[in-house]
């Protein structure tokens, strides 16, 4: 790499990344429009849901007016869009609270769970992926393959139910629901989160482990690996020094997908462990037809997803000289 070409390399990368960010915003806008349209197609509205079955048409009409639901949909959408652009996601139709406040209570929960699961799952996945790739075709690889494949195949609710029956009901080692006390001690914290992290982790470890294995095996067949081997590089050193940096692009992409799943896809775990996170909040918003809350949740999920993919792309671009220079 000569000194003269260095600035252009980075300029290329920056342009690519800026493009991605621009596209992300367009995607967000489109998603918000789609969510708004789809949710208005749902039967019933917040006024009906709040008042329940026994309400008279007059009561519903009055509440609808009070909530501003009688105004045309495009007007409501544009208003909401301006609100969110200025950082105000509006007021919940059902709870007597601003949407930002409701979310600020749930978002830390979701972040904690996602972060803990990542912390546990990613190292495990790397361990399994690398071990199995290095031992490709041998007994250890076959064993790990069977293990990860069955972990992928097991539905979350089944893992969760079995884990609860054994660990909580029979042995009473862990609580069956995730209730984190205020200012928990370290022990309380670990006990509370153990079960949901295990259950969420199972799927993530298996998926990610398999992706890592595939990415490393693809690299292991390359000529440069052959060359390094001939030069006498030890297997562990080769994987960490030579193979991993080249396989990092696809691995980071797989990680981004897995982690974004931890954000919005934790609904089963949130339901079973009665954990107040964002996914169940969004389901709640759908059933009560609380549009501002629903929209805000959807935006958060979408933005997280885009952010993670963006990070993955950036890493891939920076790690790949060919993309960097384009």
């Amino acid at each position: 790499m000569s000194a003269a070409t260095t600035p252009s390399i980075w300029r290329g990368a920056v342009r690519l990344i800026a493009q991605r960010i621009g596209l992300a915003f367009v995607t967000l806008l489109l998603v918000s429009a789609v969510i708004f349209t789809l949710s208005s197609l749902l039967p019933g509205d917040a006024a009906q849901e709040v008042l329940g079955r026994g309400a008279s048409p007059e009561q519903v009409a009055a509440l609808r007016h009070q909530m501003g639901l009688d105004r045309p949909a495009p007007v409501r959408y544009v208003e909401w869009l301006f609100g969110i652009a200025t950082g105000n996601p509006g007021h919940s139709l059902v709870a007597n609270e601003p949407v930002a406040e409701i979310i600020s209570e749930r978002l830390p929960n979701t972040l904690t769970l996602a972060a803990l699961t990542t912390l546990v799952a990613v190292p495990c996945a790397f361990l399994i992926g690398i071990a199995s790739a290095v031992a490709q075709g041998r007994k250890l690889d076959r064993l790990l393959n069977i293990l990860t494949l069955s972990m992928v195949a097991l539905p979350e609710f089944l893992v969760a139910t079995i884990a609860v029956l054994i660990l909580a009901v029979k042995l009473q080692w862990l609580p069956s629901i995730t209730l984190v006390p205020k200012d928990p001690t370290f022990g309380q914290f670990v006990r509370a989160y153990a079960m949901p992290v295990i259950v969420l982790g199972v799927g993530v470890i298996a998926q990610l482990g398999r992706m890592i294995r595939a990415a490393i095996i693809a690299e292991l067949g390359r000529p440069y690996v052959e060359m390094a081997r001939l030069k006498g590089v030890k297997s562990m050193r080769m994987v960490f020094r030579h193979v991993l940096p080249n396989a990092i692009g696809p691995i980071v992409n797989a990680m981004a997908l897995s982690l974004s799943y931890l954000f919005g896809g934790a609904i089963v775990v949130e339901t079973i462990f009665s954990y107040p996170g964002l996914a169940s909040l969004m389901v709640n918003a759908v059933t009560t037809r609380d549009m501002p809350l629903l929209q805000a949740c959807a935006m958060i999920f979408c933005a997280t997803y885009l952010l993670l993919v963006l990070i993955a792309d950036t890493v891939a671009i920076l790690a790949n000289p060919r993309l960097r220079q384009r």
Binding site: T161, V164, L165, A168, V169, Q172, P175, S176, I177, L179, T271, I272, F273, S274
Partner: peptide, 17 residues
């Protein structure tokens, strides 16, 4: 608190939570 899922609710009772 609320535990919407019936199986989880009964489990929580039996596990003493």
């Amino acid at each position: 608190i609320a535990i919407p899922d019936e199986i989880s609710r009964v489990n929580a009772l039996l596990s003493g939570d």
